[in-house]
Design a protein around this nucleic acid. Structure first.
Lengths: 108, 108
DNA sequence: AAACACTACTTCATCTGTCGTAGTAATTGT
DNA sequence: ACAATTACTACGACAGATGAAGTAGTGTTT
């Protein structure tokens, strides 16, 4: 399991990635992140939902409801053009981040 | 310039890396991080000195003074065996972190 | 029918690490 | 004399992550 401080700067990016192919909702995104990371990273519920609030406030995602007559009401999210731009910028930043941190990593 | 949230989990690791070859002190470490990262990452003074406090409290570094009859007194730091073990663990964790985050990165 | 597991989300309070601002203190360069 | 650089310290604010707890609905087991 990876410590959260490391991922901290990329939680939002991961969520946006999960929305690239279309709308989704909290619980599903949570499951998918877990699966895609092969159980190596599990985003805490509170982290996830507070990230949604932040992302929406920043205009990177939109939220809406679908007519579902079953189960507890889900809040669906969709990535916005600004969200996509932010995601792309984060991907580019990540390349640089990797290069930088790798300079401080030594195989001993 | 890299956002600090990304590096957040690796500030301590970077500092420990700088101490692998022998003792050093705040200002020097700061300059060296800046230089090694090719100006892509500049650790803030307050971040650096608060990291020293944390690392020492955790037993990862020792601090001491050298007899210097010139300039403002420097606090020197040296990595401990526990610090080395922690550094190694962080390096291994970093490999996994890279793998995980890369799954969420798409070249668009 | 009661208990439990699972889905789906919310609220609240707390903690950690980073950072802005400011200040102290000594040396070196112009 | 003054600015710049070296070297560090103190303090308060803030953002993001987290633990704990709760709400609400569905499905399955006992």
């Amino acid at each position: 399991m990876i410590s959260s401080d490391v991922i901290r700067g990329y939680n939002d990016t991961m969520i946006l990635y999960m929305l690239l192919d279309g709308e989704s909702y909290g619980y599903e995104i949570s499951k998918n992140i877990r699966k895609l990371s092969e159980e190596k990273y599990i985003m805490k519920e509170t982290t996830l939902y507070s990230a949604f609030t932040r992302l929406e406030k920043n205009g990177y995602i939109d939220s809406f409801y679908l007519d579902e007559t079953f189960g507890k009401r889900r809040t669906y999210y969709r990535i916005t053009p600004q969200g996509l731009a932010y995601y792309r910028a984060k991907c580019e930043e990540w390349q640089i981040t990797q290069e930088v941190i790798n300079k401080f990593i030594k195989e001993l």
